[in-house]
Computed example of a mutant assay.
Amino acid sequence: MRPSVRRSLGVLTAAVSSAALLTACGSGSESAAGGDSSITLGFVNGANTEFHTCLQRAIASEAKASGVEVLTANSNQNPGTELSNIEDMISRQVDALIVQTVNVDALEGDIAKAKSANIPIFLTSVVAKDTTDILGAVVVDLPGEGKLNSDWVAEDAAGAQVKAGVIAGAPGAASDLLIKGFTDALPANVTVVANQPGMFNRTKAQEVAENMIQAHPDLNYLFVANEEMAFGALNAFQAANASVKIVTMNGTDAGLVAIKEGKFSATVANSPTTTGTMAVRNTLALLKGEKIEKIAQSPIKLITKENAGEAPAYCLES
């Protein structure tokens, strides 16, 4: 079990909208947990990006505030490791599982394994098509995030014929939904001329961007599946003295600074603090049989220089 993290009420207030709180906690986290220290949750994380780290921090913080124990494991973007982690949590007899999957295709096996052990499974960020056998989920509208960036590009291009590049994350994971949301919503005047995975890694994304600059020196826009990779891409374009408008997502502190300085044109705020907090509260409420939404939405928001001050807090203080 990882060390507990002190809860910051000020940050949580900024991070979770009133509507999300009403959906997530019903009568509040103390009520949802019932102060029952005998409850143990298992959290299986998908990777070690800043999003995943902050998601785990929020889950640990809310579990502590709710008076329950949480055990954690990380699958490091490996579906096989994810299933092994779930099996380990089952052997440790957790009362419920919270899973940030590495791959939507892995969910079927994850859900079946939890069901066979009679352990409720709660999903974060994405959800299986068939929700019959899950306790619930806090879902991020990943196609919607892509579409918000696409809408910004469409408005900025104003009908001109322009070229766009895409740096995806890891194939088969949430990145696919983000990219599809972006590319499907683009108007006909925007042509995607390059689409390569950056594997959610800054160095890899920089290499991908360098290749794009060589192949398409007249690129107008670049859509990047997270801010960490976007900074790698930015390094490549700055080194080549090339100009491109970068749109991305996360809403981290560093990302917001880049927005304010004009290095990124737009980002979509998707707070793991909000998602993690809601995940624990909703899991506990559903375990008690409270009537709340089984599939809840974590809010997203397009952020530009004009509204950068409205972005929710991304991560709790350690």
Score class of each variant (00 low, 15 high):
residue 143 P to A: 07
residue 254 A to V: 01
residue 218 D to S: 13
residue 315 C to G: 11
residue 39 I to Q: 09
residue 312 P to S: 15
residue 58 A to L: 06
residue 167 I to K: 10
residue 142 L to W: 03
residue 97 L to I: 05
residue 108 E to W: 07
residue 72 T to Y: 07
residue 232 G to C: 02
residue 72 T to I: 04
residue 229 M to H: 03
residue 299 P to K: 13
residue 108 E to I: 12
residue 241 N to D: 14
residue 218 D to W: 01
residue 100 Q to S: 13
residue 20 A to V: 08
residue 317 E to V: 10
residue 207 E to N: 12
residue 270 N to C: 14
residue 234 L to E: 01
residue 68 V to I: 05
residue 122 F to K: 03
residue 128 A to Y: 07
residue 198 G to F: 14
residue 229 M to G: 03
residue 288 K to H: 08
residue 99 V to F: 09
residue 242 A to M: 03
residue 231 F to W: 00
residue 50 E to K: 05
residue 243 S to Y: 00
residue 40 T to F: 12
residue 143 P to F: 06
residue 245 K to I: 02
residue 202 R to D: 11
residue 35 G to A: 15
residue 137 A to F: 05
residue 263 K to Q: 12
residue 139 V to N: 03
residue 130 D to M: 04
residue 268 V to T: 03
residue 57 R to N: 07
residue 284 L to E: 14
residue 140 V to S: 09
residue 263 K to G: 00
residue 117 A to S: 09
residue 279 A to V: 10
residue 11 V to C: 09
residue 245 K to Q: 10
residue 271 S to F: 02
residue 237 F to W: 08
residue 226 N to K: 07
residue 45 N to V: 15
residue 287 L to R: 01
residue 123 L to S: 01
residue 250 N to A: 08
residue 115 K to H: 06
residue 156 D to Q: 11
residue 11 V to E: 15
residue 287 L to F: 09
residue 270 N to H: 06
residue 265 S to W: 03
residue 264 F to A: 01
residue 245 K to Y: 02
residue 241 N to H: 12
residue 241 N to I: 04
residue 4 S to G: 08
residue 68 V to H: 00
residue 183 T to D: 05
residue 41 L to T: 08
residue 315 C to Q: 08
residue 316 L to T: 03
residue 46 G to P: 00
residue 83 L to A: 04
residue 2 R to S: 13
residue 252 T to F: 04
residue 181 G to P: 04
residue 149 N to L: 06
residue 259 I to S: 02
residue 236 A to F: 05
residue 251 G to M: 03
residue 245 K to N: 06
residue 134 I to W: 00
residue 294 K to G: 14
residue 47 A to Q: 05
residue 95 D to E: 07
residue 287 L to T: 02
residue 278 M to R: 03
residue 274 T to R: 01
residue 284 L to N: 08
residue 131 T to E: 09
residue 296 A to K: 07
residue 32 A to L: 14
residue 253 D to V: 04
residue 220 N to L: 06
residue 289 G to Y: 08
residue 8 S to P: 11
residue 232 G to D: 04
residue 71 L to E: 02
residue 5 V to W: 10
residue 174 A to C: 09
residue 313 A to F: 03
residue 130 D to S: 07
